[in-house]
Amino acid sequence: MIRTRGLSYTYATGGAAPLRFPDVDLRQGGTLLLRGRSGTGKSTWLALMAGLRGASGGDLFVAGTQLGTQRGAEIDAWRARTIGFLPQKLYLSSALTVADNLALVYFAAGLPRDDAAIHRALTQVGVAELAARKPHQLSGGQAQRVALARAVLLAPQVLLADEPTASLDDEAAADALALLQQSASACDASLVIATHDQRVVQALAGAQTLDLNEIAGYRATEGRE
């Protein structure tokens, strides 16, 4: 679950006005569509949920934990065990195989590597045969599936996806969205998708929505993510 009250974030540079986000209550296993043009703060909101940035004000509860009290290795381990994050830039290490990229999740969580679980996660997203390849040997769609397998490897309670259909054609976008929903459902994760893609908006017309186009301070922060 995700619960926010009075959440705000102030950028350290640039003199922009603080972003003040609407309150959110997302139940466990629910879906939230995070809408907004570039610069409205979608990526910032996701980073706050993942503990990658600290809020300037307000209260933030994610999967039963109040964020803001943890530091360093503690928050890193919490993130690895609790949050599945599919960023727009996939951040796969070019020096490592697909399987070894997934194994980094165990290192971050302070857990022993589990090759059987890595195989299951890759199988779940349909790329088990790519385990020994390196990222430069993957197509864009294959790399995204590998990143999704990494995100759901530890059965996260919250799955965050930042513009997962960007630059995809209609068929690939539909497949990516279906796979995200299936992966979240498999581990009963709350799913948050940040997007300005109208195809996603139409496909998830019944989902809970947070529209950041409407927040105060948009013009002052235009151009930021």
Rank of each mutant, 00 (worst) to 15 (best):
T4H: 13
R5T: 09
R5C: 15
S8Q: 04
T10A: 09
Y11E: 01
Y11L: 02
A17V: 14
P18A: 05
L19G: 00
R20N: 13
L34K: 07
R35N: 12
R35C: 14
G36K: 08
R37F: 14
R37V: 13
R37T: 03
S43N: 02
L48Y: 04
L52N: 00
A55V: 10
S56R: 00
G58L: 10
G58W: 14
F61G: 03
V62S: 11
L67R: 09
D76A: 06
D76P: 02
A77C: 09
W78N: 00
R79Q: 05
A80V: 07
F85T: 00
F85D: 00
P87I: 04
Q88I: 06
Q88R: 05
K89N: 01
S93G: 12
S93Y: 12
V98Y: 06
A99V: 09
N101F: 02
L102M: 09
V105E: 01
Y106H: 02
L122D: 05
Q124F: 15
Q124V: 14
Q124K: 15
V125N: 08
E129T: 11
A132Q: 06
A132V: 03
G140Y: 03
G140C: 08
Q142C: 07
Q142V: 05
V146H: 02
A147V: 04
A149G: 00
A149Q: 02
V152A: 15
V152G: 09
A155Q: 08
Q157I: 02
P164R: 12
P164I: 12
P164W: 14
A166M: 11
D169T: 10
D169M: 14
E171A: 15
A173N: 05
A174M: 07
A176V: 01
A178R: 08
A189L: 04
A189R: 02
I193W: 11
I193E: 10
T195P: 09
D197H: 10
Q198A: 12
R199G: 08
G206N: 04
T209N: 07
D211M: 13
D211T: 07
D211F: 12
N213P: 01
I215Y: 06
A216F: 13
Y218Q: 13
Y218R: 14
E222K: 13
G223E: 04
